[in-house]
């Protein structure tokens, strides 16, 4: 992977982030309703609202507002929440850990379950295992995550009191406690992605198996794990990595629903409350964060392509 390509990809990512910042900013101003009135409350006088509007800078031209906000963003200052005195950065940093942990663990679950099931199914195409994986994968894609979450809670928390049904624990409260709180949410969130990955992996592995170079490797005496590791997986990985990159962004959004089901106060709760209260600095911060995460994931996916596929490296 050439340095120039990394720089090009990085530049593209930054451009996307900048465009997202404009859209985010405008979006909030296009939402019906006046943030100043929301802040002032129901019994405020027109003068109060005017004063608050001036305080927030909402009376100035939109372009000027954007420049002020964006220069702040560049310095890492996303402004303050309209209702508490906390900065947006602090609010987000306070709510982000449970969401990020659950999302990351969901990715781990998805990769572990999905990719391994897909590999086994692809290698044994037409077998009973393959048919079972395909059927389960279809089921997994069709099942809404909140419903799956409730089924998991009912089985693993209510019927059998093995895992806590709600809440989140800090890592400082002990690894076991921490893990027990994130197993169910991560699984509920990750299984749909696991199903998607399993289908793609199966298809890719089955496709690679028909390629002439696999026959060449067999003719050389390669078989079993050696053949799978060195000849099949790497060539089957590219489409799978693409899907994973797309799914990771979806998982971050899906975490909002899962937080609600498990009563965890994370980014989702923060974002939903911000929308309901028209707390636009928080909304802007949240959307920007999501954009950064998605752009970053895509960058990682692009770099992974180069690592997996030598043809990309020289291109």
């Amino acid at each position: 992977m050439g340095i120039r390509m990394i720089i090009r990809r990085l530049g593209g990512g930054l451009l996307v982030l900048w465009l997202v910042s404009i859209l985010t900013f405008l979006l909030v101003h296009l939402i019906p309703g006046d943030p100043a009135e929301a802040v002032a409350g129901e019994n405020a006088t027109a003068a109060d609202v005017e004063r608050i509007r001036a305080e927030l800078g909402l009376d100035r031209p939109v372009l000027e507002q954007y420049v002020t906000w964006f220069t702040g963003v560049l310095r890492g200052d996303l402004g303050r929440s309209l209702f508490t005195d906390k900065t947006v950065v602090d609010s987000i940093a306070g709510s982000a850990p449970p969401t990020l942990v659950i999302t990351l663990m969901a990715i781990v679950v998805a990769v572990l379950v999905g990719v391994s099931a897909g590999i086994v199914a692809g290698l044994t195409r037409g077998s009973r295992v393959d048919r079972a994986v395909s059927a389960l994968a279809t089921l997994g894609i069709a099942m809404p995550s909140f419903w799956l979450a409730m089924v998991l809670v009912s089985v693993f928390s209510l019927t059998n009191p093995w895992l806590p049904a709600t809440g989140y624990a800090e890592l400082s409260e002990g690894f076991g406690t921490w893990l027990s709180h994130i197993v169910l949410p991560s699984t509920a969130l990750g299984l749909a992605t696991a199903a998607e990955l399993a289908r793609h992996t199966r298809g890719c592995v089955a496709d690679v198996l028909t390629r002439p170079y696999i026959r060449t490797a067999r003719a050389r005496g390669a078989s079993g794990g050696w053949l799978v590791r060195r000849h099949i997986l790497r060539n089957a990985a590219i489409p799978v990595v693409t899907v994973l990159g797309l799914q990771a962004g979806r998982l971050l959004g899906g975490a909002i629903v899962i937080e609600a089901v498990f009563g965890i106060s994370g980014l989702g709760t923060l974002a939903v409350n911000a929308v309901l209260q028209r707390n636009y600095p928080i909304i802007q911060g949240y959307v920007l964060l999501c954009a950064v995460v998605v752009v970053l994931l895509n960058l990682i996916v692009d770099l992974a392509y180069g690592w997996i596929n030598p043809k990309v490296r020289t291109a």
């Binding site: 390629r211 002439p212 170079y213 026959r215 060449t216 490797a217 067999r218 003719a219 050389r220 005496g221 390669a222 060195r230 000849h231 790497r234 060539n235 997996i308 596929n309 030598p310 043809k311």
Partner: peptide, 21 residues
């Protein structure tokens, strides 16, 4: 025996060699 005492050469080298190795 495959690749040991018996070696094999195939028709289309482009598709018969592993592209990522």
């Amino acid at each position: 025996i495959r690749g040991g005492p018996v070696g094999m050469v195939f028709q289309e080298p482009m598709s018969s060699l592993n592209p990522s190795m």
